[in-house]
């Protein structure tokens, strides 16, 4: 089974987000980039599926050369090879098209359900549409048996079991594997990752349909009004009369 895992390189979750002085872009000063957390669950699941069924795990990424450490980390975790499309990932349709060009040769196409930077949550569904494939979005469980796929997804107030066939697109999240099962690179992995193939391909010059104009930060809140412990009645009154929240 040929598995493709699409990964994003995103600011570490502990990052304070700031923008350049003209507010047009993220200020990357002092920010450490990591594999998008949703993609990490998917990557670990892909490696477990390879252990069960054989095959290969390829990671694909659209981004500039300075994102390569993220791909090397994915290789160190256990992916067999990596493909980097040399372009800035700004528009989801552009990214989906670039990834779909690669993905058409794979049996199982996986990605996190969204990236924690631009949160579009749209690339997996767009790849599925471009390639005329089925999709399990927000996937929390996945088993493969021959070409049969059984999956689980979160729905409003519950979960749903699904069946489908390969090839398919899976947009995954926690539950595919547990947090405690996430694979982390060991020394041997880091050493071998240096010599695993990382192929750079040029972008297909696909259309960009959206563009970022500017960024802003949420308004600061007024300082916290403290209520004495034991005086919960006052809190209830404040929530009713002042905040109008109850």
């Amino acid at each position: 089974m040929k598995i493709l895992v699409c990964i994003s390189s995103v600011p570490d979750t502990t990052s304070k987000i700031n923008f350049t002085s003209d507010k047009s872009a993220l200020d990357t000063n002092g920010i450490q980039f990591i594999i998008n957390p949703y993609d990490e669950f998917v990557l670990t699941k892909a490696i477990k599926l390879r252990e069960q069924h054989g095959g290969t795990v390829t990671v694909a990424h659209v981004g500039p050369a300075n994102n390569e450490p993220t791909l090397r980390k994915a290789l160190a975790i256990g992916a067999d090879d990596a493909i980097r499309v040399d372009a800035e990932a700004t528009d989801s349709f552009f990214v989906a098209n670039e990834l779909a060009t690669i993905a058409k040769d794979f049996d199982l196409i996986m990605a996190g359900r969204e990236s924690i930077d631009y949160n579009g949550g749209s690339v997996p569904a767009m790849i599925a549409e471009i390639l005329d494939l089925g999709l399990i979005n927000g996937c929390t469980g996945l088993e493969i048996n021959g070409s049969n796929v059984s999956g689980e997804r979160e729905i409003e107030g519950g979960k749903e079991s699904l069946s489908a066939s390969l090839p398919i697109v899976i947009a995954g999240q926690k539950g595919l594997v547990e947090e405690s099962d996430l694979l982390i690179p060991n020394m041997r992995g880091i050493m071998t990752a240096r010599t695993k193939p990382l192929n750079v391909v040029t972008a297909q010059a696909n259309e960009e349909r959206t563009v970022s104009i500017s960024f802003e930060k949420p308004a600061e809140r007024a300082s916290c009004k403290l209520v004495e412990s034991g005086n919960e009645a006052e809190l209830v009154a404040l929530l009713h009369n002042e905040a109008k929240a109850i």
Partner: peptide, 21 residues
């Protein structure tokens, strides 16, 4: 949940730009 799954597909079908959230 449903909207997230169908909106990006719809954008591809309609050759439309897509903006979420």
């Amino acid at each position: 949940n449903t909207g997230k799954t169908i909106a990006p597909r719809l954008a591809v079908k309609l050759s439309a730009g897509f903006i979420s959230n």
